[in-house]
Structure formats: structure tokens, C-alpha cells
Design a protein around this nucleic acid. Structure first.
Lengths: 249, 249
DNA sequence: AACCATTCAGGTACCATGTACGCAAATGGA
DNA sequence: TCCATTTGCGTACATGGTACCTGAATGGTT
């Protein structure tokens, strides 16, 4: 009855299990080692390059060896997400200044997301709850503690912030990844691949406000980090405006 | 020199081209027909089931025939996105009541996203700008016209709304899709697959605010549509609070 | 009417993917 | 020394995108 139905539950319920001291060959690898290799490949060549064979090759072994450590490739994604999230460094608890706590958090998430361009896409396309995601989430919730909000409001605000950060980072990365996929460098992609179409749309005049957003925008030419910070401030302003205990300012 | 570099530009710059009346066999299919078949399959069995072979099979032909109409599978995704977005029905122009316009828009996007569970995931994972996305975007921008905002503020607010709607619908669908992928029905998935882990986390007591969000939430038991509406109202409240001409209310 | 450049249909083929299966090698307790 | 147990990993299969090629259909030109 050697742990029959391996996939009937989340991977977080199936620890490595290699810590017993019975008979049998000693394991030569580890989940963490495999996950780290997968992350490296995905960082450099995109998540679609992190195939089982490629990861195994990087470790100097065969593809099937990995299945002694990871039930399915999808579970490896969960492990990759958690490993990346573990890089987010946060204070032990909220400082009391919710706004600066959340600004710190948002920047950490953005930085980590940019270091691992696949992270946000995976994170938002599968429901996963690894320990490091829980840790980060708990910090976010904690920032709103003590403002007289009930738990539903708190989760709502954390959701708003997460939605912004994820979407903003996703947009930042979207172009870069698409350029990489098509094999062009980002500058060429914008000019040669998407540019002609946008120009045609603009010249058609069919979408006047879209045209203004392309032609008259001042923020479009800002550095991406600056844009991120502007959007973040706006979301935090919006949240502040919805917190009753801060409203009569 | 039969249109050499097909992939050097966006698919929206390469119309079907089958409208000339030169010599040669008449085409038996069309982009729209192929896209429609792909959408049907993706709706029923997930986007990963919409393979070239499967789509061609549905049309009673061979996989390679499709390449006469679509350069690459990725371009088919763009076409699918645009076909789905074409189902969003909107008034010709803004009504003057920005809030009701945007509520209508958000609900249309949500309904369309739920009808095509792959839509939002594709839309947010690749930068695409099909005609129908432009149409919808223009309507959103238009709702903010005449409130004395500059174009950067307008695009910012539209971005905030989009971020919310996309993230919310994505969350709604995430569970369903994950359940389908693992082959369980959503109820079993929540109880047998994710449930035990969440219970373990809760009982560990390591994340007290997360625990409250799981145990004490009132909104968690609401119908999903109700939750969506709450979140939408909150975002619209937040936006309203940031519009100067509405502030001294 | 005969021809032909052009276009479409779609079979075959190639390579890459996830992973089921099976067997040999290693390991520590009896 | 044996043996149940566990790992390492080669083989094999089904399935994926798509390059290439042949043959059929088509309409303009001679």
C-alpha cells in the first residue's frame, strides 16, 4: 500500500518522505534541488523551456528520475511558485504604518515577479497556497489589522492591492515575454511587430480616446518603475478613501 | 514572392486575403469557421483540448489545412479572444452616467469570461489588441469622458477596473478549471483535494488572520455573482473617491 | 478548347513533450 | 548472507505543433 493515490490531494500534503531510515537506496536528489534547476531554466528561457527532460539534463540525470520526487509536472509549478515567493523578505510583523508596509510588500512582489517572469502568470492561473504564499498573504492582512476593519473588508483590500500588483507586473512582463517568444528583441517587437498595426488603428481614427491614450499620454514615456509607483499610490489612495477610520481627514 | 515573412507582424495586419478573384482552387474554410470550432472545443473541454488536429477533425479535414488560414496556433488564440470579445454587447456610446456604464461593461465582461473559461487567462497572458478589444476598451475610456480628467487618469481608472474584473473572474474560474484539470468535480476538489491542506494550515494556527478570513468570513458564503458585485461596487467607490469633480459630494 | 500558373487539401514525417512501466542497482535490517 | 525496499533511469507510447510535398481544383490566357 505504498501511498497509492498520490494525486488525490495537494502537493503540500505530500512531504518528500525521504527522511525515514528504512532500507533502500538513498535518494540522490531532492525536491528543492529539482525546483531550483527548474526555476533557473524558466528564468533564462521561459517556463515552457523547463521541461522534465531539460531539468533532468541540467541535473545530469534522466527525465524519469524526477518522478521519484514530484508526482506531476503541475506540482512542480507549485513548488516553483513557492520557491520564488520564499525570496520575498518581509519584517516579522506589521510596523503600524499600513501604507509603508504595503508599499514595501508591493515592491518586493514586483521585484520578485520581474526576476522570475513566469511567476505571476503561474500564480494567477492556478489556485495554489504554498507556505510562502501564506506567509506573504498573512503579512498583507496584518498590515490592515488594528484599523477597525472586519475580516471581509481586510481581505477585500488585500485583494484589491494584489489585483493591482499582479496586473501591473503582468503588463510589464507581457511585452518582454511576447518579444522573447517571437524571437525579437523588445524594441524591434514594439516597432516592427505591433507598431504597424497600432499605427494603422490610430490613423483610421476609429477609436479617438484610444488614440489620445497612445498619442497624448505623459505617463507612457515614464520608466516602468515610476509608472508602477504611480499606480500603486493611486490604489493605496483609493483604499485609504474607503477606510472609515481614515476618512475624516 | 508570395507574402514571405508571415510572422514578422501581428495577425491583425494579415487579413485572410482570400477575397481576390485570381486563378486557383476556392478556399473551403475560413478563419471565422476555424476560430468558431476552436472556441467550441475550448469552451467544452478546456483550451488545451483545442489542438490543431482536434479542430481540423471537428471540421472534417486534416490538421495541415488550417495553416492555410492561420499562420501559427498562437495567432489562433488571438482570433479566439477577439471572437469571444465580439459577444460583448454595448451601447453605441456612453450614457453620461459613468457608473452605470461601467457596471454594465463589467457584467458583460464577466458573463463572457464565464461563458468562455479560457478567455481571461489568454487575454491577460498575451498582449493582444484585436478590433473587438479595442471597441470594448474605447467604450470604457468613453465612460470617463467629460468628467474633467486627463487621458492618463482615464487610462489609469480603466486599468483599475480591468484589473479588478479580470482578477475576480479569474478567481471564479480558477477553481472550476483546476477541478476540471484534475478530473474531480468542483465540490470534491474543494473538499478532498484542497480541503485537508487548508484544514491542516488552519489547525496549525500559524496564520491567525488567514484563519479569520477562512473561518469568520461572511462574504465567503455568498453567491459568486453577489461577491463580484460587492467587489465591483468597492472599486467604483474607490474610483469615485479619486475623481476630483465628484469629491465634494 | 487546351494549357498553365496559382491556390487549396491534406497525408506523411519529424521532433519534442509528459509519463506509464519495468528492471537493475543500491541499501540497511534480520 | 539474504531480502524487502527504494532509487536511477532506459524504453516506449500517445499526443502535440508544424515543415514539406504531392495532387486536385480553378480561372485567365492563348
Amino acid at each position: 500500500m505504498c501511498m497509492a493515490d498520490e494525486r488525490a490531494t495537494s502537493i503540500w500534503m505530500q512531504p518528500e518522505g525521504h527522511e525515514r531510515s528504512g532500507p533502500g537506496r538513498r535518494p540522490g536528489y531532492s525536491r528543492e534541488q529539482i525546483t531550483r534547476a527548474a526555476v533557473q531554466i524558466a528564468d533564462a528561457e521561459g517556463v515552457e523551456a523547463a521541461t522534465m527532460r531539460r531539468i533532468a539534463g541540467e541535473l545530469g540525470t534522466g527525465a524519469m528520475s524526477l518522478y521519484r520526487y514530484v508526482p506531476r509536472r503541475d506540482d512542480l509549478f507549485d513548488l516553483m511558485i513557492d520557491l520564488a515567493m520564499s525570496e520575498i523578505e518581509l519584517p516579522d510583523g506589521p510596523s503600524g504604518d499600513w501604507r509603508s508596509d504595503l508599499t514595501l510588500l508591493a515592491r518586493q512582489i514586483r521585484a520578485t515577479g520581474l526576476r522570475h517572469p513566469w511567476l505571476i502568470a503561474l500564480l494567477t492561473s492556478r489556485p495554489t497556497l504554498g507556505p510562502n504564499l501564506l506567509r506573504v498573504h498573512e503579512f498583507a492582512l496584518g498590515a490592515f489589522d488594528g484599523l477597525g476593519l472586519d475580516i471581509d473588508d481586510i481581505t477585500g483590500f488585500v485583494g484589491m492591492l494584489n489585483d493591482y500588483v499582479h496586473s501591473a507586473v503582468r503588463r510589464e512582463i507581457g511585452w518582454l515575454e511576447e518579444a522573447r517568444r517571437t524571437g525579437l528583441d523588445p524594441e524591434r517587437w514594439k516597432r516592427d511587430y505591433m507598431g504597424p498595426y497600432v499605427r494603422q488603428v490610430v490613423e483610421s481614427g476609429a477609436f479617438p480616446l484610444f488614440n489620445r491614450s497612445v498619442l497624448d499620454s505623459r505617463t507612457a514615456h515614464l520608466a516602468t518603475e515610476e509608472r508602477f509607483r504611480h499606480g500603486l499610490d493611486r490604489i493605496l489612495d483609493a483604499i485609504a478613501a474607503l477606510i472609515p477610520s481614515l476618512c475624516p481627514r
